[in-house]
Design a protein around this nucleic acid. Sequence first.
RNA 1: GCCCCUGUGGCGGAAUUGGUAGACGCGCCUGACUCAAAAUCAGGUGGAUCACAUCCGUGCUGGUUCGAGUCCGGCCAGGGGCACCA
Length: 861
Amino acid sequence: MSRYNFQETEPKWQAAWSEHRCFASEADPARPKYYVLEMFPYPSGRIHMGHVRNYTMGDLIARYKRARGFNVLHPMGWDAFGLPAENAARDQKIHPASWTYDNIVVMRAELQRMGLSLDWERELATCHPGYYAQQQRLFLDFHKAGLAYRKEAFVNWDPVDHTVLANEQVIDGRGWRSGALVEKRKLSQWFLKITAYADDLLAALPKMERWPDKVRLMQENWIGKSTGAYVHFRIDGSNDKQTIFTTRPDTLYGASFMALSPDHPLSDKAAKSDPGAAAFIAECRAAGTSEAVIEAQEKRGYRLKLDALHPFTGKKLPVFIANFVLMEYGTGAIFGSAGHDQRDLDFARKYGLEVIPVVLPPGEDPATFKVDDVAYTGDGTIFNSDFLNGLPIEEAIRKAGEKLQEIGAGEATTIYRLRDWLVSRQRYWGCPIPMVHCGDCGIVPVAAKDLPVLLPDDVTFDKPGNPLDRHPTWKHTTCPDCGKPAQRETDTFDTFVDSSWYFARFCSPRLEDEPVDRAAVDYWLPVDQYIGGVEHAILHLLYSRFFMRAMHLTHHADLDEPFAGLFTQGMVLHESYKDDAGKWLYPEEVDKQPDGTALHMDTRRPIEIGRKEVMSKSKKNVVPPARIIETYGADTARWFVLSDSPPERDMEWTEAGVEGAWRFTQRLWRIVTGWIADHPSLCKPADRAALAAADGAALVLRRATHKAVAGVTDDIEKFRFNRAVARIYEYANALAEVKERDLADAGGLAARREAMETVTLLIGPAMPHLAEELWQRLGHGTLLAETAWPLADSKLVIDETATVAVQVNGKLRATITLPRDVDKAEAERVAVAEPAVVKALEGKPVKKVIVVPNRVINVVA
RNA sequence: GCCCCUGUGGCGGAAUUGGUAGACGCGCCUGACUCAAAAUCAGGUGGAUCACAUCCGUGCUGGUUCGAGUCCGGCCAGGGGCACCA
C-alpha cells in the first residue's frame, strides 16, 4: 500500500486553494460573519514554534467556522516597525527597510508552507507608507478630539536604546527590550490620553465574558482604581495649600506628618533655598527603582521648614520630603497616619514622630491598645477621633469625606494608577509623528494634503541617537499655518500604536485617504476570536481597547471593544542542553540514550539535560519549524501542536511527540485509502436508505461516527483541541477494528462509507492537506475546504443502554448494563440481585438505595 | 506584602461539572511478520501482596455527603501578575 506523500500533496492543495480563492473574503451583509485573528508577527527572520502553535489554532477555528457556514475573515500581516531592524542596520550595514522586507518574504513563505487558510489579499505591513500614512491621519483626528497632547514630564529614559519608554514598558525598573536601568528624565513628549477612558476600560471588563478571567484581572489591577478622598492642607504662615490623596480619610485624626515626593514641585521649590533639601532630592534620584533596591532601602526623609495645618484640628504637622512617596501616584504627597500604615509607622519611629492609634481592633480596650512595630491595618471601630468616634471604618470614611466637603477642605474622589500613554520614541524605524514645530505658531499638525510624512531613506546608524534628528534636510519644512520655516517632529510612534488598530485596517487594507472604510468596519468588527500570547495581556490589549474607543469618538467606528473573544495560548517549551564545559547545545547536537542520559552527537561526551524552558535562541533549545515541516509535513506539525496539552497551557516540544503525530497521519491514510482500494465502486455518497436501515454492527459503527461528530464539534467550540484530537484517535481506533464480514450488507457498507467521509471531514480543520487528498480520493469533485461540517444525528449520539456502576456503601462492586432511562425500581431490583453486591452486603439489611439514572446505583447497608 | 492560577501513573494529560479515576497519546513490556532491523499489526501497562481475590491510590490535613479529583476550612509546594499605590 502506498504511503502518504506529503511533499507532493501539500503544495498541490495549497495551489488549489489559492487558485479557487477559497480564503478570500468579502463583506456580505446577507451572511453571518466571523473574524478570526491571530496576533500578527514581528518579522524577525524566521517563524518559531510559538507562531506555529498560534496560527494552527487560529486556522483550525477559521476552517471550522467556514465549514459551519460563516463568512470568515482570516487575515495576516506584519508588525514591521521596531528596534531590531535598526540594530540589524547598524550591525550588518543593511537598511532597516530591506532587512524587514527580506524577512517578510522568508516568513511569508514559511507560513504559506503551513497551509493556513489566510486571505493573503489583505496582507499588510505597518512599515508600509500605505499603512502608516493612515495611522498619521488617525493620530491627527485623535489630536483634534483632544486625545493627543504634548507635555513636559518626568519620563522613563532607556540609556541603551536611547529612547523614552511607556510605563508599561518598564519592568522592575528596567527597559523591557534592553534590560538597562531606566533613568528619569524631564522631557517634552507626546502622550495619548488613555486615562480619559480609565473608568470605561475598567467598567467594561466584567461584560467581556469571552476573555480569560486572568487577563481581565490583570487589566483591572493595571488600571488600579482607588476610591478615597482629596484632602487640602493649608501651609502654616502662607496662603498655599497642599492636596493629598488618601484611601483612609477615617484615620485623619491619627495624622502626625505630611510627606512629599522628591519630584514634587514643592520639594523643588524648597530645594532652591535649602541646600540640604537639594542634596536629599539628588540622593533619592540616584537610587534605583528596582525591587531589590526598594526592598533594601529604608524609609528616609528630610524635614522642611514648613508645617501643614490639620484640616479638622488645626494642629501643626511637620512636612518632609520622603523617599518612599511617588510623584506618579495620587498627588505626590501623603499624610502620615503612623498607627495604621506600616511605612508611615517606620518613618514615624525613625524621626521620633507621634503615633496616634485611631482604629480600635475588636475586643481591645481603648485605654490600653498600643501600636508598637506593626501597624494595625485590620477592621475595627474609630476612636481618638472626635466626631468619628465609635464608627466602623466604612462609615467613618464616608462621614470624614462629607465633613471635608462641608468645610471646604477636600472631597471624596476616585483615582487611577493608569498613566497616559507616552507614544514618542527617539528612533528612526517607526511611523513619523505628523507634527511641525513653528517658532511663531507653536506645535501645528501637518496639513491633510501633505500626508503622509514619509521616512527618509538616506539615514545612518553609525552614531547613537535619533537618525531623523541628525538628518541634514528632512526635518526642515515650513509651518502649515504661517508658511515660515519650521521643524518637523523627529520622534516616531511607539510600535504599539501600529498594532493598536491593524485589526480594523484589515477590513479595508488598500483604502487610500481614510484609515478605514466605515461599512467594512461595521460589518467585520469586532474580531470574533482573537488568539495570542498572554504576554500581551496588558500592553497591546489595553492599548487596542483604548484605540477602539478613540476611533469611536472620531467616527471611524461604532463600537468600543475590538475583541469579542480572546484566547491566550501557552508557550512552547523544550529541554535545554549543556555540554561538560557549560556551553548550550542545540537539540540536534544531542544523542539521547535509552537510560535517559544524553551524549554529544560527535564528541560522545556527556551532556547535562536541563529544565524544560521556553524556546529561546540564547539557550539554543529551539526547533526550527521549517525543518519539522520538511521532515514530517505541515499536517503532522499542526496535528502535534494541537495534541496532548490543553491550548492555554504551556506544551513541551518532543521528537517522540512529533513522531506519534506522524504515525497517526500515516495510519489514517492507510485506513481510508485501504478502504477505498477494497471498495472502489463505493466512491459515491453513502446510500441514505441503507444508512437509515442499518442495524447490528452497522448501527454500532454509525453510533461511533455520530458520537465522534458531536464530541469533536463540542470540543472545538470550547477550545479543547487536545480533547478533540483524542476523540479522533478513539474514532480511528474504532474504524480500524471494524470487521469486514460484519459489515458486508448494504447497511454495513453505507455505514462504512459514512465513517470514511466523516473522519476525513473531522480532521479537515487540523490536517487540511491530508483531508483534502482523502476527500478527492473518496470521489468528490469539490474541495473539502468548501464543504459543510458534518452534523450529528442526536438519536445516534445517545446509546440505548447504559453501563451503570453498582456501589455498596460507596464502594464499586459491580457494573451492570441496563436499558437507558429504565425506571428506578427496576434498576434497584437488578442491582441488589447482583452476586457481587449480595456478597459485599454480607447479609446486612439494605437501609436505602440511591439510583442516579444511567450512572450509578449506591446500595447503603 | 497583596491578588490570581495549578498540584491526578514513568511523562503530556482525560474524567459527562458531586456519580465506574487514569480516556487518548508518549514511553515501556510481550507476541506476530522479518535472515535481521525499521515500519506495521495483536496484546499488556497506577501501586501493593507470586496469581485469584482483596486492599491502597488524585500535594498534605480535617469536614460536608449515600457518594469527593471535583464542594468547604486549614496547611504545603510550584507558577504567574502587581508592588514604597498612600
